[in-house]
């Protein structure tokens, strides 16, 4: 019991620290590409702490308050059901009780809580942001889940632990044995991280702050925290599924960071797509590759056999 509590707190702490450091690195790299110095790597931590110690004087009813709490609970549970390390008793959370299908469900809790909270605020900019967010979600979920289904098909299990255990050695990593599934997942994964070119939801110039337009003070701090933790949970999930998991924290950080660098490089190069362009893209390219991959992995072996 004591072990589970300490382990859960450690997971939440690790994902939070990794979250603000990764995002701080992202902002600094972005600044260097634009030939300026940029903020310190701790900037996201400062921002987050500042918001936690601001006042919160506005109220739009109970749902406006509970929405961020639902999103936060979604982020915490997602972090706790993704195993951070393999062959270790630490940083496991409750992952032995869950599997990939549960994680798929938990990933949707955030956007739904967002929609509930922003809907009750009645701000038209916020509602516009949520509409864009849910439309983009419709586009990215289908190829993302198809990619996860491909991984489950390949390993014939939905347990993240079993998938990690099957990838012993570089030659057995998911990215080597099933590169098509990685390609299918990569682009929806970037969109799920809210990174360019699929960042139209939070685009400041176009819809003000997107869904967060009405949040300030502590609730915005909560939303920032969950965003950072959720990003790390998704990164670790992809590391578990395709990069063979990690046996200690340093390896975990190295692998998650290299994946983060890959997605960052993609999002630094490509400009923002409109909502309908993003959905079009997802339903054509990643979904097309995904359907082809399903045909290749499911039916082709049975035909040739």
């Amino acid at each position: 019991m004591m072990h589970a509590v300490v382990d859960s707190l450690a997971m939440i702490g690790v994902s939070y620290v990794m979250g603000f450091l990764f995002y701080g690195f992202y902002r600094q790299l972005n600044a260097r590409i634009q030939r300026r110095w940029g903020p310190s790597i701790w900037q996201n931590f400062f921002d987050n702490m500042k918001f936690f110690f601001k006042s919160e004087t506005l109220s739009h009813g109970p749902m406006f308050f509970f929405g961020p709490m639902i999103i936060m609970a979604g982020a915490f549970t997602t972090v706790l059901f993704v195993p951070f390390l393999k062959d270790s008793t630490w940083l496991q959370g409750f992952s032995q009780y869950g599997n990939l299908i549960l994680i798929i469900y938990l990933l949707v809790v955030g956007p739904l809580g967002n929609a509930l909270a922003v809907g009750s605020s009645g701000n038209p900019f916020g509602v516009m942001g949520v509409t864009r967010g849910l439309t983009r979600l419709m586009g990215l979920e289908v190829p993302f889940f198809l990619g996860l289904a491909l991984v489950m098909l390949q390993h014939e299990t939905s347990s993240v632990h079993a998938i990690m255990a099957a990838q012993d050695g570089l030659a057995n990593w998911g990215i080597v044995t099933n590169p098509v599934a990685f390609v299918v997942i990569l682009l929806p994964f970037i969109a799920a991280q809210n990174a360019s070119p699929f960042d139209v939801v939070g685009a400041p110039v176009e819809v003000y702050a997107g869904p967060r337009v009405e949040f300030g003070g502590r609730l915005l701090g909560v939303l920032m925290t969950q965003n950072m933790m959720m990003s790390i949970a998704k990164l670790v999930l992809v590391v578990d599924l395709f990069l063979g998991g990690a046996s200690n924290v340093l390896v975990l950080i190295a692998k998650a960071f290299s994946l983060f660098l890959l997605t960052t490089a993609i999002s630094m190069v490509f400009p923002r797509l409109k909502t309908e362009q993003a959905v079009d893209f997802f339903w054509k390219v990643p979904l097309g590759i995904g359907v082809l991959a399903v045909i290749l992995t499911v039916w082709l072996p049975s035909w040739s056999a």
Partner: peptide
């Protein structure tokens, strides 16, 4: 923008008065 780069002091634009 790049020349004066207020972000190095942690100063960035906010979208709404709330934030």
């Amino acid at each position: 923008t790049s020349r004066f780069d207020a972000e190095r002091f942690g100063i960035i634009g906010a979208a709404t008065p709330r934030q």
